[in-house]
Amino acid sequence: MSDRIRIVVLLFPAMLIIVVLFFGGLVVGLMRSFNYMPVIGLTEPNLQAYWSVFTDQEFFLSFLLTFHIAFTSTVISSVLAIGAALLLRRRFVGRALVNFLFQLNLTVPHLVGAIGILYLFSQSGSFARLAAEWGMIAGPADFPELIFDPYAIGIIIQYVWKEIPFIGLIVLANMQSIGEDYESVARSLGATRWQAFRYVLLPLLLPGVLSASVMVFAFTFGAYEIPALLGANFPAALPVLAYRKYTDVDLAARPEAMAMAIVIALLSAVMIVIYLRYSRRRIRD
């Protein structure tokens, strides 16, 4: 058996799964989004589902909320992760322990984390009770609304908590491979500590930071479970809205759900491209 044939044979099972599940699903989803669903008598493809999506005010509000969640979570996680990596690359007593604790929540599933956030930050949660106990607020109900709130604060807290170590570890590995000599050169050329970070280290870290933050952005933009658990009912995040449409008792709503899913994917891709271009230009100027 030639090498080429062997490679094809070895790759076949993996490729089969990717092609059938991913592209198969995509094709089916696209067909349904174009209102082609013979099982319920929709046999003439059209753009009606997309029209309904784009003219629906709820979709627009959901998009704004989802963008806010993804963008804010990504930016806060990235900034804090870079800060954490800057501290963790230093030598200090107990560094190994701090490093271990920093990575610990990578192993905790999102759902478990979300329940923790719910217990801690909701108006009936631990922080609300403690604040009331210490007389900071009259009663737990006076605690600020951080869960199921219109600004998605609980969702953002959950994402930030979970994504800081993810981005942080990538950035830390990046920092360690870059070393400190570039910053030393910059300092000896007259750069302050901040200038050495801003003009030298940050641009060198850029590829790692961007690829990690793009992954976080794409994930938080398309994730369903956290907004479903910690988010407000209206407006809901786009994946929650799409799922609601998909599970609507009226099968005729399904093309709209599919159109929404396709739009989420496209928007996500477009925003990643814009984010990458903008960040590169901002950091390198």
Binding site: S184, S188, L189, A191, L206
Partner: peptide
């Protein structure tokens, strides 16, 4: 004196030109 105020410039062995 901080490094940026010493008036000393160090050229490293592997040049360390900023690649970007």
């Amino acid at each position: 004196d901080k490094p940026e105020h010493r008036g000393v410039v160090m050229v490293f062995q592997n040049y360390l030109l900023f690649p970007y």
